[in-house]
Design a protein around this nucleic acid. Sequence first.
DNA 1: GGGGACATGTAAGTGGTTACATGATTGC
DNA 2: GCAATCATGTAACCACTTACATGTCCCC
Lengths: 178, 178
Amino acid sequence: MAQKNLLPMILLGLINIEKKTGYDLKKDFETEIGEFWSVKHSQIYLELKRLEGNGEIKSTTGFYGNKIEKTYYEITKKGKERLESWLDSYSDILNVNKDEFVLKLYFIKSRKDPRLQDLLQEQYRLRSKKLEHLKERMKFVFPNKESKNDNFGHYLILDHAIRREQEYVNWLEEILEK
Amino acid sequence: MAQKNLLPMILLGLINIEKKTGYDLKKDFETEIGEFWSVKHSQIYLELKRLEGNGEIKSTTGFYGNKIEKTYYEITKKGKERLESWLDSYSDILNVNKDEFVLKLYFIKSRKDPRLQDLLQEQYRLRSKKLEHLKERMKFVFPNKESKNDNFGHYLILDHAIRREQEYVNWLEEILEK
DNA sequence: GGGGACATGTAAGTGGTTACATGATTGC
DNA sequence: GCAATCATGTAACCACTTACATGTCCCC
């Protein structure tokens, strides 16, 4: 989208928790952070180089087995400052949520369009599946009340995602009933 | 984002309603379709050229005053086919909603982080404003029950947007109360 | 007369995707 | 042995943004 560049912040944020390799970061995007952000590994490695060039992270070499070298990155003072300064800042730009399904609905003017039912049913199937997945994640990541306090931000996000998806499903159900 | 290219579909969809100039399309993105999709005029003009090159739209010249030429585009049979084929298709890719605020929350681990309250308050202000705006739009675009049937898809989208925004505001309120 | 809307483009830069590329390691 | 995972990168392409650019029309 050539949008506001937030990937550096995510990488700094993740590396700030503990030193990581590019591959570790890739894994992070496949699990928890992948629920609300996506990026390809090629982009991660490019951005890491850039951050290192800026002196916001620094690398050390580790090994996987005897021959495979892996590069650990840790955050520097400069990187910490950038991260903190971002966390302290406000942004009044609300993201526009580009949803292909919603777009199709827009062009289906009539309530009686024969395509409407199939489209709704398919979306209902997809969204219900997503909702179940999110609920499973919640159970897995926060199995009890105390665990929520360990990473309150993450708990809030999952909670929010579940409510949003639930709303989506409810909305689709209501339309299907009509 | 170099994402799935949906702009051609939007342009075809809008031109399919009635013939339009690039400027008309730009205006559409500033009003109703702008609630859930954004694009710059430079991109619109580029995409129009491409669509015309493909033979999916065709242009005729009109005038604004005596000297300013404007180019009207109307959809061709080929363009209609592409549009219909898209409307008939399914996509099982759910968009990842990239929300900067949510990202910040993720990196604020602690419930007691002093930045949390300000961040929440600011987001609450923004989201409430957006919600009010959407409610106003709904009143304006669909002033009565009958009008909903004229463009059922658009009604559904606005309804959905309001519910989603309402959920966002409720969620923020709950956190602020804690 | 001037400012905002009307109207249409080009050019440079960048974030992101897709595809290509390579090789070791681990567990079955 | 072989498949999946670990691990890191480059290159081509593309959608999109930002900035630059130009000129008319209409109303106050």
